[in-house]
Simulated assay, not measured.
Amino acid sequence: MTNDSTPPPPPPTSDDKLIPFSITNKVPIKLNLEKHNYTSWSSFFIIHLGSIGLKSHVEKSASSSTPDPEWCKHDDLIKMWILGSLCDSLQEQVVSTPGNAKDLWDHLEKLFHDNKDARAINFDNELRSIKIGSMSINEYCTKIKSMADRLKNLGSSVSEKNLVIYAVNGLDSRFATIVKIIRHSEPLPTFETARNTLLLEESTLLEAVTNSSTFNSSSSSPTVLVSTKTEHKGTTSSNFNKPQSLCNHFNKGQCKFGDRCRFIHDH
């Protein structure tokens, strides 16, 4: 019997991990100036680079004016990943950025932080005046959280307390009771807790409306039947109780129906 002397496969090298792939599998966000999603995008990217030991390429400048070929290969790959995770318009704007991956990374960060104070003021005003309107609670709270994330991207974080205040201030009269409860809570609940409370209240209100509609629909038909039956009984009763005159012939003892006669009839 021949022994199998085939050696086991070698462990994967760092280069095996760097075979080009679609970056959207690792960074599921397209960086977009209009969406102000730099913080979310950069967080995903840093996590991905950290998982393969290349985070230093966007955090530190090259340690040497003539970096080794291996470092250059990794850096070019990261630049390709960065460009592949941008929306089309932003990609065209920065694709010719000179330098290494760190230069491209810094260029993008600068684009998102230009005029950030003016944009932060606009977002803050919009957040303070938000109203629920025709939105559901989930849509409403998601919009508030999204606006808060945009402000955070611009360096103006919104506290949990203010998020709750903005949320309850924008609700309408349907939620008056639960708004009073939240406002008088000491301390105020977190935004997620307030959101869950409002979702439950919305569910309760919708269930009450549904039950009311079902009750009104099911009770309307018997009402018509009773009304119809009452009218019918009234007509019958009216005909039955109608006064009738006694037969004159019977009073004289001359009616051909004899003792069976009681009322006027044809002879």
Rank of each mutant, 00 (worst) to 15 (best):
K60D: 13
S63H: 08
S63K: 11
D68V: 05
H74T: 07
D75C: 09
D76L: 05
L77T: 02
I78Q: 07
K79F: 07
K79M: 10
I82L: 09
G84I: 00
L86R: 04
L86C: 01
C87N: 15
E92Q: 12
V94M: 00
V95K: 15
G99F: 04
G99Y: 09
N100K: 09
A101R: 05
A101Q: 00
K102L: 13
W105E: 00
H107F: 09
L108Y: 00
E109V: 14
D114M: 12
A118M: 14
E126L: 08
L127S: 04
K131I: 08
K131V: 05
S134T: 13
S136D: 04
N138H: 09
N138G: 09
E139C: 05
Y140W: 01
C141Q: 09
T142Q: 10
K145M: 13
M147A: 15
L151N: 02
L154N: 07
G155P: 05
K161F: 11
N162H: 11
L163Q: 07
V164F: 04
V164P: 00
V164T: 02
Y166W: 10
Y166H: 10
A167N: 10
V168M: 02
G170T: 00
A176L: 13
T177W: 06
T177D: 12
V179I: 08
I182E: 01
H184Q: 14
S185N: 15
E186P: 06
P187A: 04
T190F: 06
T190M: 08
E192M: 11
L199F: 07
E201P: 02
E202Y: 03
T204A: 11
